[in-house]
Simulated assay, not measured.
Amino acid sequence: MSKVLARIREIGIFHRKNVLIKTAVSVVIISLLASGIVFATYSDDVNKSLADNLIRLHVVANSDSEEDQALKRDVRDIILEYMKDKLKDSKDIEQTKYIINESMPEIEKLAVQEIQRQGKDYKVEVMLGSYPFPTKLYGDIALPAGYYEALRVVIGKGEGANWWCVLFPPLCFVDATHGTVPESVKEELKNVLTEEEYSMVISADADDDIPVKIKFKIVEFFQDSRIKVSGLFDRIIRSIL
């Protein structure tokens, strides 16, 4: 009888331990899911705010051949020279969008003229829309991966490596090759972003600011994952069609 009672107690203890383990695992899973939702929401909010306050330029080459890549850079330079003059007095994103929309026919014309001057007959597509971008450094400013509004110029088949910068605020028109962006441009960036967002993009590479680096990595991870999943779905749909 005592053996039976002892066995019952063992079973009861095992059952309670099993319940406790399952409960603990469930709590951990739920906590991780909740944290993931919070981080994903935070990432989307930051990306949306950045996308609502920045306009990028995206030039896509016909192919990765040396000739086509050189042509892309020449077209880029012509567009930058033209837009630098057009946007020199623009002070807000809505005015910049208006100027870009008004300028698209001329941008296409200038791009086609340069392409034809170099003996090519590639078509050119000029669009203003929302497009995926990887993480990008501009001197000491870093923008996390995500979807951003951009003036997109596609040369020919658009199958080559692309080039991008920021039209508003005007990071396209400064020399960031020496590792810094002028204070005047940073001030413009500061005026269109929240304090947290500005701190994130200006300090993402600062080793002594761990909280900012973590926030940047959260946005980068979730937005990069979103871009990859979206790209996978696009490929699946194209293969079906």
Rank of each mutant, 00 (worst) to 15 (best):
L241G: 13
G12H: 10
E67T: 11
Q223P: 10
E106Y: 00
D224E: 12
S26C: 09
K136E: 14
Y42V: 04
Y131E: 14
D74I: 11
R7M: 12
A204N: 06
K48G: 09
S35D: 11
N101E: 14
I141H: 00
Y198A: 02
S65R: 04
R117Y: 13
L171D: 04
V192F: 08
D64T: 07
V154K: 03
P182G: 06
A204Y: 06
L151C: 00
S2W: 12
G119V: 13
L171F: 10
E195K: 09
E195M: 11
T180F: 15
T23E: 15
V192H: 10
A161S: 13
S35Y: 12
I115P: 00
A142E: 09
R117Q: 14
R238P: 00
S199K: 07
K22A: 14
V124Q: 01
G156Y: 07
L193M: 14
R16N: 06
F168N: 05
R9C: 11
M200Y: 05
S49Q: 14
I240T: 03
N53E: 14
D234C: 08
V124D: 01
V46K: 05
F168T: 07
S103R: 06
Y198R: 02
L50A: 11
K3V: 09
E66F: 13
P182T: 07
R235S: 11
I8F: 11
S65T: 07
K22N: 14
G139D: 03
E197K: 05
Y82Q: 06
Y148R: 01
N101G: 07
E149K: 06
D68R: 03
P211W: 12
Y98T: 10
N18C: 11
M83K: 00
D234S: 12
D92I: 10
L50S: 09
